[in-house]
Simulated scan of single mutants.
Amino acid sequence: MVFTVRKLDSLALLAITVILWIAFLVELVEHQIPCPLCLLQRVAFTMAGVGLMMNLRFNLRPEHYGIVTLSSLSGLVVSVRQILLHIMPDNPGYGNPVFGLHLYTWSALIFFALLIYSGVILVLGFRWRNFVTRDFSFPEKCIVYIFFTIVLANLIAVVIECGVGPCSSGAFSYHWLWN
Protein backbone atom coordinates (compact mmCIF):
# COMPACT_ATOMS: atom_id res chain seq x y z
CA MET A 1 0.00 0.00 0.00
CA VAL A 2 2.80 2.44 0.83
CA PHE A 3 4.39 1.77 -2.56
CA THR A 4 1.10 2.59 -4.32
CA VAL A 5 0.64 5.78 -2.31
CA ARG A 6 4.21 6.84 -3.17
CA LYS A 7 3.40 6.38 -6.85
CA LEU A 8 0.21 8.42 -6.42
CA ASP A 9 2.21 11.13 -4.65
CA SER A 10 4.68 11.12 -7.54
CA LEU A 11 1.83 11.49 -10.04
CA ALA A 12 0.24 14.27 -7.98
CA LEU A 13 3.58 16.12 -7.81
CA LEU A 14 3.98 15.67 -11.56
CA ALA A 15 0.47 17.07 -12.09
CA ILE A 16 1.27 20.12 -9.94
CA THR A 17 4.49 20.61 -11.88
CA VAL A 18 2.62 20.46 -15.19
CA ILE A 19 0.03 22.92 -13.88
CA LEU A 20 2.73 25.39 -12.85
CA TRP A 21 4.44 25.02 -16.23
CA ILE A 22 1.16 25.58 -18.09
CA ALA A 23 0.46 28.74 -16.08
CA PHE A 24 4.01 29.94 -16.71
CA LEU A 25 3.78 29.24 -20.46
CA VAL A 26 0.42 31.02 -20.68
CA GLU A 27 2.13 33.98 -19.03
CA LEU A 28 5.00 33.96 -21.52
CA VAL A 29 3.30 32.93 -24.76
CA GLU A 30 0.01 34.80 -24.44
CA HIS A 31 1.55 37.73 -22.52
CA GLN A 32 -0.98 37.37 -19.71
CA ILE A 33 0.68 38.73 -16.62
CA PRO A 34 -0.65 36.97 -13.52
CA CYS A 35 -2.68 39.02 -11.07
CA PRO A 36 -1.83 38.94 -7.35
CA LEU A 37 -4.53 36.30 -6.74
CA CYS A 38 -3.00 34.16 -9.50
CA LEU A 39 0.37 34.47 -7.81
CA LEU A 40 -1.14 33.34 -4.51
CA GLN A 41 -2.58 30.29 -6.26
CA ARG A 42 0.87 29.47 -7.62
CA VAL A 43 2.28 29.73 -4.11
CA ALA A 44 -0.41 27.34 -2.85
CA PHE A 45 0.40 24.87 -5.65
CA THR A 46 4.08 25.15 -4.79
CA MET A 47 3.47 24.46 -1.11
CA ALA A 48 1.23 21.48 -1.92
CA GLY A 49 4.05 20.20 -4.13
CA VAL A 50 6.52 20.64 -1.27
CA GLY A 51 4.29 18.52 0.98
CA LEU A 52 4.12 15.76 -1.64
CA MET A 53 7.86 16.00 -2.25
CA MET A 54 8.50 15.58 1.48
CA ASN A 55 6.48 12.36 1.34
CA LEU A 56 8.72 11.10 -1.42
CA ARG A 57 11.91 12.01 0.44
CA PHE A 58 11.06 11.33 4.07
CA ASN A 59 8.40 8.64 3.57
CA LEU A 60 4.70 9.03 4.19
CA ARG A 61 3.77 11.09 7.21
CA PRO A 62 0.52 12.72 8.25
CA GLU A 63 2.32 16.04 8.73
CA HIS A 64 3.20 16.13 5.04
CA TYR A 65 -0.40 15.54 4.07
CA GLY A 66 -1.28 18.32 6.50
CA ILE A 67 0.90 20.66 4.42
CA VAL A 68 -0.87 19.50 1.26
CA THR A 69 -4.27 19.95 2.91
CA LEU A 70 -3.61 23.43 4.30
CA SER A 71 -2.01 24.58 1.04
CA SER A 72 -4.89 23.21 -1.02
CA LEU A 73 -7.43 24.78 1.30
CA SER A 74 -5.77 28.20 1.06
CA GLY A 75 -5.46 27.84 -2.73
CA LEU A 76 -9.13 26.86 -2.95
CA VAL A 77 -10.15 29.94 -0.96
CA VAL A 78 -8.12 32.23 -3.24
CA SER A 79 -9.46 30.53 -6.38
CA VAL A 80 -13.07 30.80 -5.24
CA ARG A 81 -12.46 34.46 -4.33
CA GLN A 82 -11.27 35.09 -7.87
CA ILE A 83 -14.20 33.18 -9.35
CA LEU A 84 -16.60 35.31 -7.30
CA LEU A 85 -14.91 38.48 -8.54
CA HIS A 86 -15.71 37.51 -12.14
CA ILE A 87 -19.09 35.84 -11.73
CA MET A 88 -21.21 38.72 -13.05
CA PRO A 89 -22.89 37.98 -16.41
CA ASP A 90 -21.12 40.69 -18.45
CA ASN A 91 -17.70 40.15 -16.86
CA PRO A 92 -15.38 38.34 -19.30
CA GLY A 93 -13.09 37.14 -16.50
CA TYR A 94 -9.35 37.49 -16.23
CA GLY A 95 -7.28 35.93 -18.99
CA ASN A 96 -8.32 33.64 -21.78
CA PRO A 97 -10.24 30.44 -21.04
CA VAL A 98 -8.47 27.10 -21.38
CA PHE A 99 -10.82 24.30 -22.45
CA GLY A 100 -13.77 26.56 -21.65
CA LEU A 101 -12.72 27.48 -18.10
CA HIS A 102 -10.42 30.18 -16.80
CA LEU A 103 -7.22 29.13 -15.07
CA TYR A 104 -8.55 30.16 -11.66
CA THR A 105 -11.58 27.90 -12.13
CA TRP A 106 -9.30 25.02 -13.06
CA SER A 107 -7.24 25.83 -9.97
CA ALA A 108 -10.31 25.60 -7.74
CA LEU A 109 -11.16 22.17 -9.16
CA ILE A 110 -7.60 20.90 -8.78
CA PHE A 111 -7.25 22.24 -5.24
CA PHE A 112 -10.51 20.48 -4.37
CA ALA A 113 -9.16 17.24 -5.89
CA LEU A 114 -5.96 17.60 -3.83
CA LEU A 115 -8.05 18.06 -0.69
CA ILE A 116 -10.01 14.90 -1.47
CA TYR A 117 -6.80 12.98 -2.23
CA SER A 118 -5.00 13.95 0.97
CA GLY A 119 -8.17 13.37 3.00
CA VAL A 120 -8.62 9.87 1.60
CA ILE A 121 -4.98 9.01 2.31
CA LEU A 122 -5.31 10.26 5.88
CA VAL A 123 -8.60 8.41 6.43
CA LEU A 124 -7.10 5.15 5.18
CA GLY A 125 -4.78 5.46 8.15
CA PHE A 126 -2.25 2.87 7.11
CA ARG A 127 0.68 2.39 9.43
CA TRP A 128 2.94 5.44 9.61
CA ARG A 129 5.82 3.44 11.02
CA ASN A 130 8.61 3.87 8.51
CA PHE A 131 10.22 7.22 9.32
CA VAL A 132 13.53 6.51 7.64
CA THR A 133 14.78 8.95 5.04
CA ARG A 134 15.03 7.32 1.64
CA ASP A 135 16.56 8.33 -1.64
CA PHE A 136 14.47 9.39 -4.59
CA SER A 137 14.01 6.86 -7.36
CA PHE A 138 15.10 8.05 -10.81
CA PRO A 139 11.58 9.07 -11.96
CA GLU A 140 10.95 10.81 -8.62
CA LYS A 141 14.26 12.64 -8.92
CA CYS A 142 13.34 13.85 -12.42
CA ILE A 143 9.94 15.07 -11.22
CA VAL A 144 11.52 16.89 -8.25
CA TYR A 145 14.13 18.58 -10.48
CA ILE A 146 11.46 19.71 -12.95
CA PHE A 147 9.35 20.94 -10.01
CA PHE A 148 12.26 22.98 -8.63
CA THR A 149 12.94 24.38 -12.10
CA ILE A 150 9.41 25.76 -12.47
CA VAL A 151 9.40 27.08 -8.90
CA LEU A 152 12.64 28.96 -9.62
CA ALA A 153 11.28 30.25 -12.95
CA ASN A 154 8.12 31.49 -11.24
CA LEU A 155 10.17 33.17 -8.52
CA ILE A 156 12.26 35.01 -11.11
CA ALA A 157 9.12 36.04 -13.03
CA VAL A 158 7.49 37.39 -9.87
CA VAL A 159 10.58 39.42 -9.01
CA ILE A 160 10.62 40.83 -12.54
CA GLU A 161 6.88 41.58 -12.36
CA CYS A 162 6.64 43.01 -8.84
CA GLY A 163 10.18 43.94 -7.90
CA VAL A 164 11.33 43.06 -4.40
CA GLY A 165 8.28 44.57 -2.69
CA PRO A 166 4.68 43.42 -2.60
CA CYS A 167 2.72 43.22 -5.85
CA SER A 168 0.21 45.99 -6.28
CA SER A 169 -3.32 45.07 -7.23
CA GLY A 170 -2.96 46.89 -10.54
CA ALA A 171 0.36 45.32 -11.54
CA PHE A 172 -0.31 44.26 -15.11
CA SER A 173 3.13 44.88 -16.52
CA TYR A 174 6.63 43.79 -15.69
CA HIS A 175 8.14 46.17 -13.14
CA TRP A 176 11.76 45.67 -14.19
CA LEU A 177 11.25 45.42 -17.96
CA TRP A 178 10.36 47.99 -20.56
CA ASN A 179 6.82 47.75 -21.88
Rank of each mutant, 00 (worst) to 15 (best):
F3K: 12
R6Y: 02
K7F: 10
L8T: 15
D9A: 15
S10F: 07
S10D: 05
L13E: 10
I16P: 06
V18K: 01
V18F: 04
L20D: 14
I22T: 14
F24D: 12
L25N: 11
V26P: 06
V26G: 06
E30S: 14
E30D: 12
E30C: 01
H31K: 13
I33S: 07
C38N: 00
C38S: 01
L40S: 13
L40Y: 03
Q41M: 05
R42N: 15
A44K: 03
A44F: 00
F45D: 03
T46E: 10
M47C: 12
G51K: 05
L52T: 15
N55P: 00
N55L: 00
L56F: 04
L56C: 01
L60D: 09
E63K: 08
G66T: 13
S72Q: 09
L73F: 13
L73V: 12
G75P: 02
L76V: 11
L76R: 05
V77S: 12
Q82Y: 00
I83R: 01
L84R: 15
L85A: 13
L85T: 13
I87Y: 07
M88G: 12
D90I: 08
D90W: 02
P92H: 09
P92C: 09
P92D: 08
G93M: 08
G93E: 11
G95T: 14
G95I: 06
G100V: 01
L101Y: 02
L103F: 04
W106F: 04
W106K: 02
S107D: 03
L109H: 02
I110N: 00
F111K: 03
I116S: 09
Y117I: 09
S118C: 06
I121R: 04
V123D: 11
V123M: 03
L124F: 05
R127K: 06
N130Q: 06
F131N: 15
V132E: 11
F136I: 15
S137M: 08
S137D: 07
F138L: 15
E140V: 08
K141Q: 13
I146L: 14
F148E: 14
I150A: 05
I150Q: 08
V151K: 03
A153C: 10
A153V: 04
N154R: 07
N154S: 14
I156T: 14
V159T: 09
I160F: 00
I160P: 06
I160E: 04
G165C: 08
G165L: 09
P166H: 03
C167K: 02
C167D: 10
C167G: 14
S173I: 07
Y174H: 13
H175C: 11
W178V: 15
